[in-house]
């Protein structure tokens, strides 16, 4: 499949990430009367004119395209809320603000397909761009702190698209760190075949490991998520 070269770390294409986001809920205001849709993915409806109802994003957009409803912009996509988020993103260089996991894709889908349902669509779009940039900048800064003794990285409030974008590089880097660390261990351990069971070898390195774990990788944990 696309995006899955032989030696690539698993990567979802943008369209695949978007596909997943399309199952997120959205509120719509139908302008038609329609019976309940008993679908495989769930039951939605009955639809009554002017009565808001929650449906999956793909369904909402499909109805919107057929002029059967308008989209109720989600609360987090209001200018006030986004301005607030942007400010907080800027103020807190060590943490990410909570946004929907698929906020990038949801915003793109809604603005592409239901632009006129947003009062300040231009403003919303520009705020979202800024938020995306500020967040990505933090991701890049966070990546710099990755080190050979990083065993676990906690990513609080990171979104799907951000995860997908940093995946290839991060996984490669961590793989290399791990590989070279282990090469070092091999060299330092006289009996490398049973390095885990002999008391000498387990005395040798782990202490360094654990110390580093709590200084360096914990820092990074702290850095990215607080």
């Amino acid at each position: 499949m696309a995006g899955q070269g032989p030696s690539e770390p698993a990567l979802f294409t943008e369209l695949e990430v978007e596909f997943m986001a399309e199952d997120e809920p959205v509120n719509i205001i139908p302008n038609v009367r329609m019976d309940t849709l008993h679908m495989i993915c769930g039951d939605y409806g009955p639809f009554r004119p002017q009565i808001p109802i929650t449906v999956p994003l793909w369904l909402g957009i499909a109805m919107k395209k057929r002029s059967k409803c308008r989209i109720q912009p989600p609360g987090w996509m209001s200018v006030e809320r986004l301005t607030e988020v942007l400010e907080m993103e800027r103020e807190a260089p060590r943490e990410f603000q909570p946004l929907p996991f698929h906020y990038v894709e949801i915003a793109k889908l809604l603005l592409d397909n239901a632009r006129e349902d947003f009062e300040n669509n231009y403003m919303v779009q520009s705020l979202l761009e800024d938020i995306k940039d500020v967040r990505w900048d933090k991701v890049e800064k966070g990546l710099k702190t990755l080190s050979g003794r990083t065993h676990a990285v906690k990513l609080k409030n990171l979104s799907a698209m951000e995860v997908n974008r940093m995946r290839t590089f991060t996984v490669r880097a961590l793989q290399s760190f791990f590989k070279h660390d282990n090469d070092d261990m091999m060299k330092q351990t006289p009996t490398d075949s049973d390095s885990q069971s002999t008391p000498t070898s387990s005395d040798r390195l782990p202490r360094v490991c654990s110390q580093d774990f709590f200084t360096r990788s914990f820092d990074f944990t702290f850095y990215l998520c607080m």
């Binding site: 065993h151 676990a152 990285v153 906690k154 609080k156 991060t170 961590l174 490991c209």
Partner: peptide, 21 residues
């Protein structure tokens, strides 16, 4: 526990996102 020796551990909390081996 992330290794055989028990020196590397991580607290896994519900809904948190991690990069792990």
């Amino acid at each position: 526990q992330l290794d055989d020796k028990g020196d590397e551990t991580v607290d896994l909390m519900p809904n948190d996102l991690y990069i792990l081996r």
